[in-house]
């Protein structure tokens, strides 16, 4: 067995902070929604607003990180192996079959994860952020943009919250489908994931290749040679 460093420091910090904030937003959000009384309505509102801002700031940092590191590419959805992954969850997993897509450092997500996280990032999260801040600043009608009612904003925000809860439930469950029940969880905490020799080999292969490509480039020799030659002749003429 080997350990592979899969999740970098910031990535884990981002993940857990976001997890905490989303959980906290759920807790306070549904109190504001009137579902229960827990920390008091006034506290719920204040903390929900503050947590919303904190999440927005975190997201800005996370987006920056994803763009500068190129990690964003991991979320590009792919149709390849979606079926295989589906079949794995529906049948293979019960036969202890191997994961159809191995985890690689440059491709940590399976095709279904890619699809779901992409949808979250592109649809659900922006809708929640926009509806959330519209909710927060609803009191200030801007000419030409005076909403008639808070109702649609609140409905959208609530639907988004229910979708996020559903995601969290399934996400928490799927954590247990790793190598062992806790291996995924441990990986997200420590950054290191346990793997077979073979899996570990696969996981690092492409990162080595890409590093090579990134730092070493083949030089097109002929053109340069020609230029050199010309230079030489020029100097000769002088």
């Amino acid at each position: 067995m080997k350990k592979v460093y899969l999740y970098k420091g910031f990535e884990r910090f981002w993940h857990w902070t976001q997890a905490f904030l989303i959980f906290f937003l759920m807790l306070t959000g549904f109190e504001i929604h009137g579902s229960y009384n827990l920390i008091g309505y006034e506290n719920a509102v204040r903390w929900h607003d503050d947590a919303g801002w904190a999440l927005l700031i975190l997201m800005i940092f996370a987006s920056f990180w994803h763009v500068t590191t190129g990690e964003w590419k991991q979320y590009i959805p792919t149709a390849k192996n979606v079926r295989a992954q589906m079949e794995y969850y529906l049948t293979g997993i019960f036969r202890n079959a191997p994961h159809p897509t191995g985890k690689r450092i440059l491709s940590k997500l399976n095709p279904i994860q890619r699809l779901v996280y992409f949808a979250l990032t592109i649809i659900v999260i922006p809708v929640m952020v926009i509806s959330g801040f519209t909710y927060l600043y609803f009191n200030y009608p801007i000419q030409g943009f005076a909403l008639d009612s808070l109702e649609p904003v609140a409905f959208i925000h609530t639907i988004g919250a229910y979708i996020l809860i559903t995601f969290v439930i399934i996400h928490l469950y799927l954590i247990t489908t790793g190598h062992t029940i806790t291996s995924n969880l441990v990986a997200m905490i420590t950054g290191w994931e346990k793997m077979d020799e073979e899996e570990a080999q696969v996981a690092v292969e492409d990162v080595i290749e890409s590093t090579k490509r990134h730092y070493v480039k083949q030089i097109n020799g002929d053109k340069k040679k020609k230029a050199k030659k010309n230079k030489n002749t020029d100097s000769e003429l002088k």
Binding site: I32, H33, G34, Y41, S149, L150, E151, A154, F155, T158
Partner: peptide, 10 residues
Amino acid sequence: DFYLPGRDTN
């Protein structure tokens, strides 16, 4: 005649 958070649901 309006949506009041905490009071109203759909």
